[in-house]
């Protein structure tokens, strides 16, 4: 796939440059983001130490000192390297990742905002669950917490803005909705998303070589499970 003609480079402090592809959430743009992320990663540019893909941007963080040992301006060096990459066609790979299945228990005791959502949206709880679990979601980016996936797109019918008063404590594994995004809290944390269920699957495990389960570009589907199965699977860990 060809790169869209419009991209913009801007600095994010004295040690990072962002490549921006606009300000919209779309699968096409995000596919380019992921492709650029992989290309920059493979290029092993001098001094680059982090590459952060987001919905429609890639931020490249670099070590000023390593680059300045060889070049008069770290910013100019990185800018030129990125422009070089972006002047060629970026190959967008067909999503090779297998569909990742995440079991979710939508029991009212875990999906603590289901009742309120049903009332506001005038949709029965069962219907919210059916809609949420019948879509394949794309992980657009991770952020907020280690391994927190921002997934979309949630069906308009069950889209809900963030809570005005965030909870001080959301349980690890909680599945939430914020606007047309759905996410999973990998760790216990304060949070403002509408909680509709919980997964027994561990999304973050510090002991593993790759501690996070989901990464940008992954495809995810939720399978409803009973509360018995939930506690059974949780105990097994």
């Amino acid at each position: 796939m060809l790169l869209p003609s419009g991209y913009e480079l801007y600095t994010v402090g004295d040690n990072a440059i962002t490549i921006s592809f606009g300000n919209t959430i779309s699968v096409e743009t995000n596919q380019i983001v992921i492709a650029v992320f992989h290309t920059v990663q493979q290029r092993k540019i001098l001094g680059v130490r982090d590459i952060i893909p987001a919905y429609s941007s890639v931020t490249v963080c670099y070590d000023i000192l390593r680059i300045r040992e060889k070049y008069p301006s770290a910013e100019q060096f990185i800018r030129k390297e990125l422009e070089k990459i972006l002047s060629h066609d970026i190959q967008v790979q067909e999503e090779k990742t297998a569909l990742i299945n995440i079991p979710v228990c939508y029991d009212i005791s875990l999906g603590v905002d289901l009742h309120e959502m049903a009332e506001i949206k005038q949709i029965p709880v069962e219907e919210i669950i059916r809609i949420h679990s019948s879509t394949t979601y794309r992980v657009f980016m991770t952020g907020f917490l280690p391994g927190f996936p921002y997934m979309g797109m949630v069906d308009e019918k069950i889209a809900m803005p963030r809570k005005t008063e965030p909870r001080t404590k959301v349980a690890a594994g909680s599945v939430g909705i914020a606007d047309r995004q759905t996410g999973i809290y990998p760790l216990e944390s304060p949070g403002g998303w509408n909680i509709i269920g919980q997964t027994p699957v561990q999304l973050f495990d510090a002991e593993k070589t790759n501690p996070v389960l989901l990464q940008a570009g992954n495809l995810v589907r939720f399978t409803p499970i009973s509360i018995e199965t939930f506690y059974h699977l949780k105990k097994k860990k």
Partner: peptide, 12 residues
């Protein structure tokens, strides 16, 4: 102005 989440750095 609606802004999408994007990479940030120390000192931002």
């Amino acid at each position: 102005q609606p802004m999408l989440s994007t990479g940030i750095t120390k000192g931002t």
